[in-house]
């Protein structure tokens, strides 16, 4: 009983210690520069197509649905832009990108590190005299924290473009009306808030996945469990962090 009660505390302690060890060796990142660049490409650049696709559709669907809800002659069409753009910046671009990357990036990291653990590749790194945490975890978490805001900006731009395009070609409102509406209620804090979210989500996804993968036990089944848990728990923590950030900063 006591073990079950202590388990979350132990997990949190283990997670904190792993990250502390990773970031205490941040001066070694130069040694693992190639690995760091490689992770930035894998986590960031390689994710652009799926992020672009999802954000374009999100922006388009949001525009269509907003237009549907405001279908009255008393409200000017430009209000659609005033609603869609902040919604993308404040919520959708970061959260949808977060969910997609929890699956794409989080699952991949957990599976990769988990396989390295069960096939003794992590032991081999340590046995050679390398700091496996510096080599494996630090580049991934840093790459996530750095590249996720880049993906967020891309998601915002592509999502808004999707909204403009569907508004124009769907006959809901002109591009000019959309952008006028966006400018009318634009707050510089909105994209800043989205960037804070994206950094937080990037950290959550990569750190949770690294933790799950690094401490994988039990062979192929263990790798499968680690992969699933990394994706699911990242999504849960994203939702919790989303609410906390909204309550603290808005």
């Amino acid at each position: 009983m006591l073990d079950r009660l202590l388990s979350p505390v132990q997990t949190l302690g283990k997670f904190a210690l792993l990250l502390a060890r990773a970031f205490s060796s941040i001066d070694e990142i130069g040694t693992y520069w190639k690995n760091f660049i490689d992770q930035m490409v894998r986590i960031g650049i390689d994710s652009i197509p799926i992020v672009a696709l999802s954000s374009a559709f999100s922006g388009a669907v949001l525009t269509v649905q907003t237009a549907y809800q405001l279908e009255t002659s008393f409200i000017p069409n430009s209000i659609i832009g005033s609603i869609v753009v902040p919604s993308m910046m404040l919520e959708l671009a970061a959260v949808i990108t977060g969910f997609i990357l929890a699956g794409r990036v989080g699952a991949r990291i957990a599976a990769e590190l988990g396989t390295m653990r069960v096939s003794e590749q992590i032991d081999a790194l340590e046995a050679m005299g390398l700091n496996s945490i510096s080599y494996l975890i630090l580049p991934r978490v840093l790459a996530g924290v750095i590249m996720f805001p880049v993906l967020y900006v891309a998601a915002c731009l592509i999502g808004i473009s999707g909204g403009v395009a569907i508004g124009h070609f769907g006959g809901f409102l002109s591009a000019q009306e959309f952008l006028d509406g966006a400018r009318q209620f634009f707050k510089p804090f909105d994209p800043f808030f989205g960037l804070i979210k994206s950094v937080t989500f990037g950290f959550i996804i990569t750190a949770v996945a690294c933790y799950k993968g690094y401490f994988t036990t039990g062979g192929a089944e263990g790798v499968g469990d680690a992969t699933t848990e990394a994706a699911v728990q990242s999504c849960v923590f994203i939702l919790i962090a989303d609410l906390i950030l909204a309550m603290l900063l808005l």
Binding site: T115, M116, S119, E120, Q121, D123, A124, E126, A127, M128, G129, L130, N131
Partner: peptide
């Protein structure tokens, strides 16, 4: 410890090659 480990070469059971 890392410094001491560089004096060793280890052949793991499955090879543990980086795939």
């Amino acid at each position: 410890l890392r410094q001491i480990r560089t004096r060793f070469g280890v052949l793991f059971q499955g090879g543990a090659l980086f795939d």
